[in-house]
Design a protein around this nucleic acid. Sequence first.
DNA 1: CCAAAAGTGTTTAGTATACACCCATGA
DNA 2: TCATGGGTGTATACTAAACACTTTTGG
Lengths: 244, 244
Amino acid sequence: MQKIVPNISVDCVIFGFDFKQLNVLLVERKLQDEKTGETLIDDWTLTGYHIFEDEDFDTAAARILKGLSGLDNIYLEQFYAFGKVSRVDSPKDNIWLKHQHEGFSSRIVTVGYYSLIDNSTVTLQLQERNVKWFSITDLPELGFDHQEILNKALEKLRSKLRSEPIGFELLPEKFTLSQLQKLYEAILGTTYDRRNFRKKVLQMKYIIPLNEKQKAVKHKPAQLFIFSRDVYERTKRERFDFSI
Amino acid sequence: MQKIVPNISVDCVIFGFDFKQLNVLLVERKLQDEKTGETLIDDWTLTGYHIFEDEDFDTAAARILKGLSGLDNIYLEQFYAFGKVSRVDSPKDNIWLKHQHEGFSSRIVTVGYYSLIDNSTVTLQLQERNVKWFSITDLPELGFDHQEILNKALEKLRSKLRSEPIGFELLPEKFTLSQLQKLYEAILGTTYDRRNFRKKVLQMKYIIPLNEKQKAVKHKPAQLFIFSRDVYERTKRERFDFSI
DNA sequence: CCAAAAGTGTTTAGTATACACCCATGA
DNA sequence: TCATGGGTGTATACTAAACACTTTTGG
């Protein structure tokens, strides 16, 4: 058993996309009074854990993600460090931490990572706790300061999505242009004209059409595409454009 | 005297612009053997310090910045947290840390902030140590992992500059369009056609011309402008544009 | 044959790029 | 009067935005 660093943790905001909405994976935090059976806490949190003494942030984030999703080699991006003195200090949080009695420090800073995964590949490692996907438009009450962390993750994800092709991490390897469009719409909270969106995307040489169509859909099957990071890296140009 | 958190620090990358180049403020790290007089260490570092037990990251960054520049209310942006296990573990770093004997932890994580300041407003608080501006194109040897931290700061600054109007933080309140252009060129490492740059900038309603010109220049005096964050916030639009 | 989503083209407005000459000031 | 940087316009190519009908499939 490795020793943990008592005052530093990593929290993972795990995003998934189900072709309709952007979802986030949350873990239920539930605690009942042992004698009275009264519910002391019942809310949801992101997944996080303390880092180990000989562990980098990136490694800790990958470990936490794997523990929950079973997945390796997933897109993970460090987006912000949270260090407010009383970021975890509500009555509920204190009850919870006391109940855990793992020798955590009273002041914990946390480094936030978000991960992007293709929903369809995940089989949740349902440990003893309740784990569920929630649409970012319909979230339950969150424990600790996790609402704030999630808000920041979303803000950073949106900003990165606008300037880099990271959306593909949320899709299967082969995807349709409508799926890609819905992804952008779901994350950026907007809508695009289908013809204009297709025109724009089809100009991008790194979105490559396959000789293959969707199967088993009850409508006209769409063409499938793959994203080539390789072509992207070789052809990208940079712009400056703080909008008017 | 407040108690420090032994394993968490904040490092500030202080950027300044002198109308020619982007500069960064560094502090000399020099150590001589007390007996032989031999120079054990002579390199430069960013400014950083441990956080106090009852201090937020933002507050610590502002404190560190003020300690060096004397300035308050400066643009500060948290850009990344560095947590590699042996990020501060070279022979030089160990000699230095031993010499400081302040009870720091052997594993220190650091949260990086960059600040943008108008060079002309700074009077360096020259404490007992040597503090100097260096052009980012002509840097000395950096101690600890500060080259890596600086690289990341630059990367994040460039990316933010491309999509948000933060460059004005590096200029005096009243500036000319040529100064603005040189700023973008210096940070993004490129050049722009003067006519096209002016056309683009003059369309931006939040860059407001004044009835005022440069004085005491030995060429045709340029018109002065101010940036209005207020107008910017009211008129900005968002785009999605991972370049082709 | 119906429902559902795929696929397609044109027009107009706006933005990006390339490029060269005259102007105002201080020394 | 010279050196220095300020200020300006046009043509062409490209990109963005608005907008409606037909096609393919499974049920």
